[in-house]
Amino acid sequence: MSTDLEIVKNTNLKAKPEKDQLPFGRTFTDHMFVMDYETGKGWYEPRIIPYEPITLDPAAMIFHYGQTVFEGLKAYRANDGILLFRPDKNLERLNLSSERLSIPPIDEERVMGYLKELIHLEQDWVPSTPGTSLYVRPYIIATEPNLSVAPSNTYKLMIILSPVGSYFSGGLTPVKISVEDKFTRAVKGGTGMAKTAGNYSSAYQAQAKAYKDGNADVLWLDGVEKRYIEEVGSMNIFFKINGEVVTPELNGSILHGITRMSVIELLKKWGIPVTERKVSIDELHQLSEKGQLEEAFGTGTAAVISPVGELNWAGEKMIINNHEIGELSQKLYDTITGIQTGKLEDSQNWTVTIK
């Protein structure tokens, strides 16, 4: 155990949910991690405490200016322990987001140790049913009571855990996606590359319209020309075109997805051509008309691989692979989830074991 970490165990443990009662992000474990920051003092008092409400001053800056960042990763049950999938990349990205939001960086190695301790304590909450996992949510909020428009001088880092099933209710059933050409998600120079709260709440109107029309999510176009594909609300996006896999390039407004990175690395290892470049919605429509848009799939921590069976844009329906999961999408899903759960050899050294 980390020598500076205080652990206060919960004496009133919750009943574990049934294995078929795991809606995404609704149930939380018995404990949480908390650490505070103060300018001139740094990060201090790391502690694991019973899961409980927090108390903040009404003038806490998080409420007024939205200075916050978060991450999402998962813990999986394997035969020889609990596995985390590339957690170092999540903490690295948390610091990348923090830099954009003027939040002080964390010591990634130190926080990794605290995260392992928390999951070790809560290991009985990691579900074992196929397709389930323990979702891990680290986040930082500005806590200084101050209405000045400036970075906070105090912050709170917390980590909470939630046992979850599939993000999309249909599992690997290909989803329908609405292409959004009215609202803007992000622009280069903004906060699109950071995981911060405002990026998500500003998408609610477009998502509500997509849901109303029978779609599972929104595919965003660039904020300037409304022409180039960026990402889906909850994941990065890939297209298989004439045997080549194409994904929008990282341009400052697209999230640096860890599953995205892993997919690109696997495709290169398998010798499958993969290109990061601009992809226009017009190009996709033309490819669909010619029957050359072979597969589409999203990648992300929550869904892992989510095949896309239909894109709806400007009254047009682009049907992809007859609404069926593609061979490559299935292989990527099987490989990544196999590594995550210890069923396949981790030749990439992506997993971290918690005994």
Results as ranks from 00 to 15, higher is better:
residue 192 G to V: 09
residue 212 K to Q: 14
residue 230 E to L: 05
residue 209 K to T: 15
residue 169 S to E: 15
residue 244 E to G: 08
residue 183 F to S: 12
residue 234 S to I: 13
residue 242 N to H: 04
residue 279 V to T: 07
residue 193 M to K: 00
residue 252 G to N: 02
residue 246 V to A: 08
residue 225 E to A: 12
residue 264 I to H: 10
residue 232 V to Y: 00
residue 188 K to H: 05
residue 253 S to D: 13
residue 208 A to G: 11
residue 224 V to W: 11
residue 238 F to Q: 08
residue 212 K to I: 01
residue 251 N to Q: 10
residue 228 Y to S: 11
residue 174 P to T: 06
residue 198 G to T: 04
residue 208 A to C: 02
residue 185 R to D: 07
residue 261 M to Q: 05
residue 250 L to C: 09
residue 231 E to A: 01
residue 214 G to R: 05
residue 218 V to N: 11
residue 275 T to I: 15
residue 228 Y to M: 14
residue 277 R to S: 08
residue 207 Q to D: 12
residue 262 S to L: 01
residue 233 G to P: 01
residue 240 K to G: 08
residue 268 K to A: 04
residue 187 V to F: 00
residue 262 S to Y: 00
residue 248 P to S: 07
residue 196 T to Q: 03
residue 201 S to Y: 05
residue 206 A to Q: 06
residue 278 K to V: 13
residue 215 N to S: 14
residue 208 A to T: 07
residue 206 A to K: 05
residue 190 G to R: 01
residue 228 Y to N: 12
residue 174 P to I: 00
residue 175 V to E: 04
residue 184 T to K: 13
residue 196 T to C: 14
residue 170 G to D: 00
residue 184 T to G: 00
residue 266 L to H: 10
residue 168 F to N: 02
residue 255 L to E: 05
residue 176 K to V: 13
residue 269 K to N: 09
residue 234 S to N: 12
residue 236 N to I: 01
residue 255 L to N: 04
residue 200 Y to L: 06
residue 246 V to C: 08
residue 241 I to V: 14
residue 189 G to R: 11
residue 277 R to N: 06
residue 169 S to Y: 15
residue 179 V to N: 08
residue 265 E to R: 14
residue 207 Q to N: 12
residue 277 R to A: 00
residue 278 K to C: 11
residue 241 I to G: 03
residue 198 G to C: 03
residue 193 M to G: 00
residue 213 D to N: 13
residue 184 T to E: 04
residue 279 V to K: 08
residue 220 W to T: 02
residue 209 K to Q: 15
residue 181 D to G: 13
residue 247 T to V: 10
residue 175 V to F: 07
residue 265 E to Y: 05
residue 280 S to V: 00
residue 260 R to S: 02
residue 240 K to D: 08
residue 277 R to I: 04
residue 223 G to N: 06
residue 263 V to P: 00
residue 244 E to M: 11
residue 205 Q to E: 11
residue 255 L to Q: 04
residue 246 V to H: 12
residue 182 K to F: 15
residue 264 I to F: 01
residue 208 A to M: 11
residue 266 L to E: 05
residue 269 K to Y: 12
residue 183 F to W: 14
residue 205 Q to F: 14
residue 208 A to K: 15
residue 242 N to F: 09
residue 266 L to Q: 08
residue 269 K to P: 03
residue 195 K to M: 10
residue 211 Y to V: 10
residue 240 K to P: 02
residue 170 G to S: 09
residue 173 T to M: 07
residue 207 Q to A: 15
residue 225 E to K: 14
residue 228 Y to R: 14
residue 177 I to Q: 06
residue 271 G to A: 13
residue 240 K to L: 12
